[in-house]
Design a protein around this nucleic acid. Structure first.
Lengths: 154, 154
DNA sequence: GTAATTTAAGATTAAATACTCTTAATTATT
DNA sequence: AATAATTAAGAGTATTTAATCTTAAATTAC
């Protein structure tokens, strides 16, 4: 699996937040229901993103979480790094410690090129870009429902 | 993590076998010592590759495992598919079931392109190619030692 | 200031992956 | 035939990841 479950949920939740019209906070309970993710598990993931300054949170009635910066300034990679960390982009595909240009494994060359492609793709993709695409084409963020399900009416 | 530990060990062991000069069987015990992989765990992985017809085995004295085909005909992808299966190349990066051209997620386009690159790279890399490179440049298959450690003298 | 709403944090449980141990089956050597 | 060397297979344990439960802290509204 490329990304952990936590990371996948964090990405879905970030797209959800980027698609919200209102500037206000969105309660995690509502997100967990819309996205069909366990509330407590999602809460932990939102805490990680909040600790990493990608989100900000507010306690109490009308509280919740929201993006701390514009969705244009948050990349797919930002979320991946915050939750899964850099391992995917630094570690040897054959699991050898310290594999790199100085002490490569036989597969290093191929993997270094490929993972740089993955990296560039993730760095070049913003969550706003994905959220806009999702809204325009009514794409999915859950097993079933379309995107419109998440658009906050005001 | 891109590949499971089992898959990583399976790949290292396959490169090891591809680098052997002799046509004979190599005992898993010896491989496990050279590659610093637990004997029983490696045995299970070798069983998987044998069941998938990538290796063949022989019991008893002078027994062991060896490549069933030439290392030129076994790709990196063959080993990955035998051990980790196709999930990496078929599943949605956001974990949505049934994500594809008909019912895509917002990230589908980017991921489909990237994973096709990974796929092509793995399909286009043979274990012989990597074994030869490893021998010529004395690269590593373990945390410490160089490749020469594995070359069977005869 | 009390109750309701919400995130934060820690403890616990469940499931998946990684690894180990034991026994059985096969083959070669003597 | 007996012994040793080896893979096969299944059961068992440990570690990691995923998910749940409980309590605390902050904030709002009445």
């Amino acid at each position: 699996m490329l990304l952990s479950k936590s990371c996948i949920y964090g990405l879905r939740a970030s797209l959800y937040l980027a698609s919200q019209k209102s500037e206000g906070y969105t309660p995690i309970r509502k997100m967990s229901e819309d996205l069909e993710i366990s509330f407590h598990f999602l809460t932990k993931i939102m805490q990680q993103l909040t600790a990493d300054e990608l989100l900000e949170s507010f306690k109490g009635p009308n509280g919740g979480v929201r993006l701390k910066k514009s969705g244009d300034e948050i990349t797919f990679m930002d979320i991946v790094m915050a939750i899964d960390g850099p391992a995917l982009f630094t570690e040897c595909a054959l699991g050898l410690p310290g594999c790199g240009v100085e002490k490569p494994c036989p597969f290093h060359e191929q993997w270094a090129e490929t993972r740089d492609n993955i990296k560039e793709m993730m760095e070049g993709t913003t969550i706003n870009e994905l959220a806009i695409k999702g809204k325009e084409e009514n794409l999915r963020l859950t097993a079933k429902g379309g995107f419109e399900k998440f658009l906050q009416l005001e």
